[in-house]
Design a protein around this nucleic acid. Structure first.
Lengths: 205, 205, 205, 205
DNA sequence: TATGAATGAGGATTCATTCAT
DNA sequence: GATGAATGAATCCTCATTCAT
């Protein structure tokens, strides 16, 4: 039996079907983002995944672990995204603007403060530690860029960590909707422009 | 775990005691701020007030109503506070700084975005409407000041509503704590200074 | 101070206003008829009467007592009604028909079996006894008429009590509505005719 | 009051034991018949089944659903029973009598009007629809027989649906008990005879 | 790998009733 | 007479978790 480059015969299940564990994690992440930790039950996740609760427990021993994995995964993806954009060769201001726009375009309000709050409230020490690590890593990615640009003299001297945080919260202004569901901006394009401009005024040299 | 031997019926009126309804509201507000809507049970509130759950339901027909009243009350107090400070005769920047400092000193992280999210997720249409009204009123108080200072030429022209929102989210940076519980600033005095400075750079003329 | 036949001055409240106790009883009766014992709370009654719960308890020491009074009152009124109609000089069949029609016209389904069941399930011994007494009195009124007409030879010999009961349950057929809310008869006039005719075939001589 | 030391998780499968879902339904049905919807709590059902409330909710998502299933099941069984008896080759009157007797012998007072009332009062639209469907099916089974016998000339022409309903309510007379718990008849045998005789006089040709 | 069946601990809400005023 | 304020016991339902298969 030589090894053929493609398995012979029809694969048992859908070749393209993502492994269950991944499906669960992605589905859960979306639910958590949309509704928050306490408003998502393991039953909800199971239903949304078309598997049983027990299956979820097979992969994630507690709801807290699932949440932890969701947050960590999400933050890692965001961090990766941020890194990619910030490593582009464009001028710094342009990169920031792009960052904001990409972020705001991602349908839902990804509010770090929120996630961290729910984490603090509901996770165990060890779970929380993992989440915090990811959070820190995420912020540090921005910080490094800020520091770099400071060193380059593109932006004024200042506390890079503080800058990273202000940048992140300013982004969240783009998500605001009033009682009638009306945003402060017409498009995320415009939002990105305004927000970056606002931020830039504070950090430019 | 001692059970207080409370009796049925209307208790003899204690002159100096605060009316129960108020006690309930205040206690609930604190709990909600500290732990969030879903992490506070009516039992928790009752216990913290040293009354029975039924007593709470006597004043607030549902948990959602209690939350609504808490939020509305809180926002109204904040709005009043903001108004008072912004109406002082000091230079605008000073008033803003004062505002930030007072806010940050208020024990806990009062994060509007958080409250609004929990509200959206858990309240009924009509309850949500009330909350939104208070929120709007709060922001408008700041907006009016911003607009006034624009007209006076103290700050640059711009979208006053946007400014109000950026101001509020920037404040929340003062609350940030990392995994070790370490804040970005040593004191709220310093936080206020840095945050206001940052904000001011963006809006000064 | 001679006693004047009419009190001088304006009576304190609305002269015509029914005494509270009566209002409570009538209101409660209607609610109980419409929704049944367990589906009517003392709060419901209070609200419907525009008084407080405590007021109701002032007149009726328990919900069971209120229900008892309601049932007894209702049955007494029905008994009185029945007696009046059965004492008319018309032919017996006509009187029966009239009875059915009047009963069916009274808006709601007054189903004795139902009331008695709820009574059995929810009242105390002594309360139940009162209700049973009224029920018996009610049936006996019909029985007496039946017996009289048997003696007169208008209807065939038989168990008068049995006849009274069959008569009552046959009436309830007039109330039947199917899933679409459609009755077996177009009008209560027609219902009365059909039901009486059916009954009469069984008891005529 | 001994708490059975039941364990978490799936119990080892007992071959001969009836499936839990069925046990729950049967137990609930009995309770509902005996005490009515509102007088049976989910706790009662759970206790009677020796399972936990959660188990019941595992099979029946709401109390209303459990009631619906109970009623539907019951009516279906009755309908089946009725059909069997009415399809026997005996003369129609005999079959009716047998029907009454069998029915009256079935321990408890199964009063359709009662169940339907509680259903109307407590079930959701969709639940109620199911119940109504079963009810209609049940009555239609009797109707068909009535119609058949009309066509055969065994009984007089008339509204078969009306006949079906009068038949059912007349049966309920057999259940009547006065304040002392005394029935109108000595035996269900006798009750069946009297009731059928009464009914027959009205419908015979 | 995955599931079906079950649990225990809450959690929101209702309700009859009480009692000082 | 009537009420406002409070209670305790239920009641319906949810949910994270467990475990034999």
């Amino acid at each position: 039996m030589e090894k053929s480059p493609r398995v012979l015969g029809r694969p048992r299940h859908d070749e393209k079907a993502k492994p269950t564990q991944e499906v669960v994690l992605l589905t859960a992440t979306n639910l958590f983002i949309k509704k928050g930790y306490k408003n998502v039950s393991m039953d909800d996740v199971a239903r949304a995944c078309n598997v049983t609760k027990a299956t979820i427990y097979y992969y994630y021993p507690t709801k807290g672990d699932l949440y932890t994995s969701s947050l960590v995964g999400m933050m890692e993806r965001i961090r990766f995204h941020i890194e990619q954009i910030l490593n582009l060769p464009n001028p710094f201001k342009e990169r920031l603007e792009q960052l904001v726009e990409v972020h705001l375009s991602a349908t839902v309000d990804i509010d770090m403060k929120n996630f961290m709050r729910e984490a603090t409230m509901n996770l165990s020490e060890s779970q929380l530690k993992k989440v915090h690590a990811s959070e820190t890593a995420m912020y540090e990615t921005i910080e490094r860029s800020m520091q770099l640009e400071m060193d380059r003299g593109t932006i004024r001297q200042g506390n890079a960590q503080f800058f990273a945080h202000t940048f992140m919260v300013l982004m969240s202004v783009g998500y605001f909707k009033d009682g009638e569901g009306i945003s402060l901006f017409q498009t995320s394009r415009e939002a990105a422009k305004e927000i970056t401009d606002f931020f830039w005024r504070s950090i430019e040299n």
